[in-house]
């Protein structure tokens, strides 16, 4: 190789002199740089939409009250600009003395999927994919093996010999998803809700790999939500329209529940299968349920300690 590089006249006879060769190298380098710039020119699109404020935005937990206000104002303006919708983004914090727990009565759930749809509408999900934080498995009676279930059924429900199991984020007390996040873009809040800072997530999707419940969703593209369908009651850590390239998940409708309201999926359930409440309140419905029904959690063996329970009562 050294011989070859020395024998310039052999390999490239036209380049007789060093200066000539150096000049050619310069041309080559310029061409290469130009070609590279052309190759990555689509990124200029990004430069148009990505603001310095967004790029340099601090982690949610490090934002000052004033900084947070500015961020929220910016996000509201962006939503107006990109989606043509007037929205209010709030940032409700956990209610002291509250830990949210959910339970579903599988004897009652009939798999109609209204919760899936309510979640879709409430949380400003992408219309193209019918995205939702909830998946309902049609399960074979006589087994808890999910492999014999499926989510694609679209016949009348309940079908003979089947039961139905909606699955969404289990708001684990030992969440593997928050452990694996390399940038602490997702964490568990004091009321038990595992949240994502959509403006901090780098989109590595390690949390998606770590979650045993298929609870996380990635924004493979910018969500498409028609202006008229945008739910204007939004939360910073919950249902504001997510940017492209970040992970999101069920947040127990914290923009509602932290204001005392029931989650959208519960209100939508026509069978009344869903029970929600504060486990720290000894008089709460959920507390009575956990004390009196034979409940179980999904995949207990993986040690995630879900705040989400299932039970049968007939």
């Amino acid at each position: 190789m050294t011989e070859q590089s020395k024998g310039k006249t052999i390999s490239l006879p036209v380049l007789g002199s060093v200066s000539r060769r150096t000049a050619m190298k310069g041309v080559g380098a310029t061409l290469g740089a130009g070609a590279f710039a052309a190759a990555i020119s689509p990124l200029r699109h990004l430069a148009d939409t990505l603001t310095v404020e967004e790029l340099m935005q601090q982690h949610y937990q490090e934002l000052s009250a004033d900084g947070k206000k500015k961020v929220i104002e910016r996000l509201e303006a962006e939503t107006k600009e990109q989606y043509g919708a007037d929205v209010t983004i709030s940032d409700p914090r956990p209610i002291p003395g509250t830990k949210f727990v959910y339970a579903i009565n599988l004897s009652v759930c009939n798999g109609n999927g209204k919760c899936v749809e309510a979640c879709h509408n409430e949380n400003n999900h992408d219309r193209d994919t019918n995205q939702s934080y909830i998946r309902v498995l049609e399960m074979q009676k006589g087994t808890m093996d999910m492999e014999q279930g499926n989510t694609t059924y679209d016949h009348e429900v309940p079908a003979a010999d089947k039961f139905y199991m909606p699955v969404q984020c289990q708001q684990c007390d030992e969440p593997p998803c928050t452990d694996v996040c390399p940038v602490q873009a997702t964490w568990k809040e004091d009321d038990g809700i595992v949240v994502v800072d959509y403006n901090w997530c780098i989109g590595c999707r390690y949390c998606e790999a770590a979650c045993p419940y298929h609870a996380r969703r990635f924004n493979w593209k910018t969500p498409n939500v028609p202006a008229a369908e945008v739910n204007p009651d939004q939360g910073y850590l919950s249902n504001r329209i997510r940017p492209q390239g970040v992970v999101e998940k069920c947040h127990y409708c914290l923009h509602r529940t932290r204001k005392g309201r029931l989650p959208a999926c519960l209100e939508a359930c026509p069978t009344g299968a869903r029970v929600f409440g504060n486990i720290l309140d000894p008089d709460s419905e959920i507390r009575w349920l956990l004390e009196n029904k034979r409940v179980y959690v999904l995949k207990e063996e993986v040690g995630t300690k879900p705040s989400f329970f299932y039970f049968f009562d007939s």
Binding site: G113, E117, D128, N130, R135, Q148, N150, D154
Partner: peptide, 23 residues
């Protein structure tokens, strides 16, 4: 009985073929 009206439209998600000994 009800008819589910809202189903996921995930890319590449097609119904599984279940056979007797599956699972």
């Amino acid at each position: 009985r009800m008819k589910p009206t809202f189903k996921p439209r995930d890319r590449f998600l097609t119904p599984p073929e279940h056979d007797e000994e599956a699972g």
